[in-house]
Simulated scan of single mutants.
Amino acid sequence: MLSDWLQKHTPRLVTPQCHLCKLDKCPSDTHPRWCNSCLKLFEPVPRCQRCGLKTVTTVEQCGECLSKPPPWHRLYCVGDYTFPTAGYIHQMKYADKFWFARDLSKLLASRIEEPASLLTSVPLHWQRYIHRGFNQSELLARYTAHELNIKNAVLFRRTRSTVSQQGLTKSARKSNLKGAFVLKNLNFSATDYSHVAIIDDVVTTGSTVYQLCQLLLEVGVKRIDIYCICRTPEPSG
């Protein structure tokens, strides 16, 4: 009986499966989590390189960025907040599957052509940190910095708790975050790190990273990039 069970289940135990399609992975598969077929679901699409939103063809700056440029220089992302990326973000944040940060970071790092010399993350308020047990952006920063072989540091602190940004309009998001962050590392020197990247799991209106960019610009940082897993079109309003 035991030998029959082993013959039936041993191949399944030693042969890794693709996390999406559940089929056995092949030796030629390039990612430890997904097979090459499912990996195509994460393939990049044309975007504005400045704001990261979808465009017909890849452009350095879309019309909106030309008229109202954001404070950052370049935005890198894996995709929009849709299947399958959205599911992994949701599981990572709300189902305690924090190990997905490593897999998503590997995808993100493969898109970044000119890495910053320093990578930092969007901070959580301490109350939310205690409730969740970890900061997903900080985890993404740690793994992405490792993939890119660059330094990772915590530069910001959240000074007050705010309501969730999800579902708010662009103007409401901006008002919600006003004065919510400060520069934590007072010894940070823009002379040593003139090119800094900020990472977050999802960027929608950009209100959060906008506030953090202003803090870096005030201390003399010359170039700021944004790294994120999902770049989602902003809601109307």
Rank of each mutant, 00 (worst) to 15 (best):
P69K: 02
H31M: 03
L53I: 03
P27E: 06
G79I: 09
L168V: 10
E138C: 09
C228T: 07
Y76D: 08
K97N: 14
D96Y: 10
I224E: 00
D4C: 13
V196T: 09
A145C: 09
L39M: 05
S207V: 03
P235K: 04
Y81R: 13
F98M: 10
A116T: 01
I199F: 01
F188S: 04
P69V: 04
K222E: 06
D200T: 05
N187C: 08
L107D: 09
T162H: 07
Q7C: 13
R132N: 12
S117N: 03
Q211E: 09
G133N: 14
Q17F: 10
S121W: 01
R142H: 13
H19M: 10
A180V: 05
Y88N: 08
F181D: 04
T55Y: 06
I89R: 07
K222L: 06
H90K: 14
P115N: 09
I150V: 10
L177G: 01
M1F: 12
R47W: 03
E234W: 02
E114D: 12
S28H: 15
L75P: 00
P233E: 01
I150Q: 04
R128K: 06
Q17Y: 11
M92P: 10
R102D: 12
K151T: 11
G220I: 08
E138M: 09
A141F: 00
P16V: 08
S161Q: 11
L107H: 11
T204W: 02
D29N: 00
L107N: 08
F42N: 04
L177H: 04
L186W: 02
A180S: 10
P84Y: 00
G79H: 08
K174E: 14
A86F: 08
N176Q: 10
C18D: 11
Q214K: 12
T58V: 12
Q127Y: 04
R12D: 14
T82D: 08
V202H: 05
Y210H: 10
Y210F: 08
L66V: 08
F181Q: 03
Y143T: 11
L23W: 14
G87W: 13
S67G: 07
N187F: 06
Y81V: 12
T10G: 07
L140T: 06
Q165T: 02
W5K: 14
W99F: 11
T208D: 04
W34C: 03
L20V: 09
H9F: 14
G220V: 06
K106A: 13
T120Y: 00
N187E: 11
Y143R: 09
N135D: 06
K22A: 13
D201Y: 03
P70Y: 03
H9I: 15
N152A: 05
L168H: 11
W99M: 08
Y81D: 10
H146G: 12
C26Y: 15
L119D: 00
C35P: 13
E234P: 01
D80R: 15
Q17E: 14
R223I: 03
T208I: 03
G133K: 15
